[in-house]
């Protein structure tokens, strides 16, 4: 009985979370088309999410590419397929690893920061003050952040792709003694423009999810400093889960 009750409560919480996200997304879209349009706020968020997140994202990409080359090399060596390490690295980076890992890093960096910032505004009545100053808080807070997420994530992923492939190249050529020309050729031989696109579409979707969840968690914060902590944690956990779950379905749809 208690188990059933706990399960029911969990289902309610999950339903409420999804409902809130959809409702707030609706308000955000409405806010997008209402004046004033705040270009500067969007630029500020682009800098915060993109420019300031760049080092972390690129470092992640380089080492992911590098370790991928190392692992596939040891595996492929067993059936003498070392030549195809480059293809594996570039395909998996572009299609899967760059968007997902970039998304996870941004969820940890920026989704949490958004939840903490908006959450503190909630508990110090700053969001009420926005309403009192006849400003739609969803429009003012959500629109620039979510737009920035959708714009910036694909940009980060393009760079992560390049750095990931480079990381793989460095390990294969410098460490494992692969032929640089053959490696590069094999890296790009089987790549299709669709591989790039599917990664970028995923990235844009992750950008939306991360920022929406970060903003929602902050906006619905309750209960002082402790509540802000809870929202921040939830923003990272739910953001990461959203990435991993939606990644599967997006991959299924985008082949």
């Amino acid at each position: 009985m208690a188990l059933l009750e706990a399960f029911g409560r969990l289902a309610l919480v999950a339903l409420e979370f999804h409902g809130r996200c959809v409702a707030l997304l609706g308000l955000t879209i409405r806010g997008l088309f209402r004046r004033p349009f705040d270009g500067r706020a969007i630029a500020t968020q682009v800098v915060r999410v993109g420019v300031e997140g760049l080092p972390v994202v690129l470092l992640t990409a380089v080492f992911t590419g590098a370790v991928l080359a190392l692992q596939t090399y040891t595996g492929f060596q067993r059936f003498h397929a070392e030549a195809w390490v480059g293809s594996v690295v570039s395909l998996s980076m572009l299609r899967e690893l760059a968007p997902v890992l970039t998304g996870l890093m941004v969820a940890g960096r920026s989704g949490s920061a958004m939840a903490a910032e908006i959450g503190s505004m909630r508990v110090t009545e700053q969001i009420d003050a926005l309403v009192a100053l006849a400003t739609d808080p969803v429009q003012y807070l959500f629109v620039p952040r979510i737009l920035a997420g959708i714009i910036v994530l694909p940009m980060l992923v393009v760079l992560a792709n390049a750095f990931g492939v480079m990381g793989g190249y460095l390990v294969a050529v410098r460490l494992l003694g692969a032929n640089p020309v053959v490696y590069m050729e094999n890296s790009f031989q089987f790549l299709d423009l669709n591989d790039l696109w599917s990664g970028l579409i995923k990235a844009a979707a992750f950008g939306l999810l991360i920022t929406l969840i970060g903003c929602q968690q902050g906006f619905d914060t309750r209960g002082g400093a402790e509540g802000v902590g809870r929202s921040t944690t939830a923003a990272v956990v739910l953001g990461s889960l959203a990435i991993l779950v939606s990644d599967f379905f997006l991959t299924k749809v985008l082949f």
């Binding site: 910032e117 503190s120 505004m121 110090t124 009545e125 700053q126 009420d128 003050a129 309403v131 009192a132 100053l133 006849a134």
Partner: peptide, 16 residues
């Protein structure tokens, strides 16, 4: 709302 001015308990200033 524009015809109202409201002051909040702790000020609720935008700290950014």
């Amino acid at each position: 709302r524009r015809r109202f001015g409201m002051s909040f308990q702790e000020g609720a200033l935008f700290d950014s």
